[in-house]
């Protein structure tokens, strides 16, 4: 199939950037990234600079791919990363607009590649638990209820791709933040730092230039891992307990 691509080209972080039209011949069995690979081979043969984009596992689990396709992070398929989006969802002659994630905290480095280092800072501020290293603990030494385990696991599905930020009209990373806090906060192992964690991560989140949440739900709709919106409620509740109620860590 023949596709008309409109791709954001930006030489480096200081370049103003612009949309460039390309025509590409794609196969319906290709993934979106493979289609871009075909475009890049064509560009390289023609002596042009290939389109830079982030990618790694191409199995939908690493969180590296990051582009916005027709205004939607990771494209139109629900619960699908860009690498798992297949060209069979498009038809011959379609026009597709491809842009980088847009957020103040995610500056464009080149073409479709943005710097998501702000997420690493948020994780460094509290995305850890303290454990004794050494011999492995007994498997069932710390019981976890089924409800808590399920909720923690659902939040742990977050691959840190940043689609929530890209989709948010406020450039907020609240869904990411809520996912990490719920993931660790539902576990007994996450309790020692629980309230310190939420305060530190929220502060780092704001300092990194992410905006505030207006509960539009755009993030949960865009999330390729279907992180539920209620993790933001959890984030708010923990923050309230940590600040207004002055709750200290159990440890």
């Amino acid at each position: 199939m023949k596709l008309n691509l409109k791709v954001w080209r930006q030489r480096d972080s200081v370049d103003k950037g612009r949309m460039v039209n390309y025509e590409v011949d794609a196969d319906e069995d290709m993934s979106f990234l493979e289609m871009l690979d075909v475009l890049n081979e064509k560009l390289i043969l023609a002596g042009d600079e290939p389109v830079a984009f982030d990618h790694d596992c191409r199995e939908g689990i690493c969180g590296a791919c990051s582009m916005v396709i027709d205004g939607q992070p990771h494209g139109p398929q629900k619960a699908t990363t860009t690498c798992q989006l297949h060209m069979r969802h498009y038809s011959d002659g379609d026009s597709i607009v491809v842009e980088p994630f847009r957020a103040g905290a995610f500056p464009v480095i080149k073409d479709l590649v943005v710097d998501r280092g702000a997420f690493d800072k948020v994780i460094q501020a509290g995305g850890y638990v303290s454990v004794n290293t050494g011999s492995a603990p007994d498997a069932h030494a710390t019981p976890v209820s089924k409800v808590a385990a399920d909720r923690s696991f659902a939040a742990a599905n977050c691959i840190g791709c940043g689609a929530c930020v890209a989709a948010c009209p406020n450039g907020s990373a609240s869904l990411f933040l809520g996912a990490k806090l719920t993931h660790l906060g539902e576990m007994p192992q996450g309790q020692p730092e629980r309230y310190e964690r939420v305060v530190n991560m929220v502060e780092t989140h704001d300092d990194a230039g992410f905006g505030g949440c207006t509960n539009t739900g755009a993030c949960a709709t865009a999330c390729p891992k279907e992180i539920p919106l209620d993790v933001i409620s959890q984030l708010n509740r923990d923050y309230l307990k940590a600040t207004v109620a002055g709750r200290r860590n159990r440890g």
Partner: peptide
Amino acid sequence: RARSARPVKYAGG
């Protein structure tokens, strides 16, 4: 804050 956190609009969609 939202303005500066999301300065560029998407062209597509």
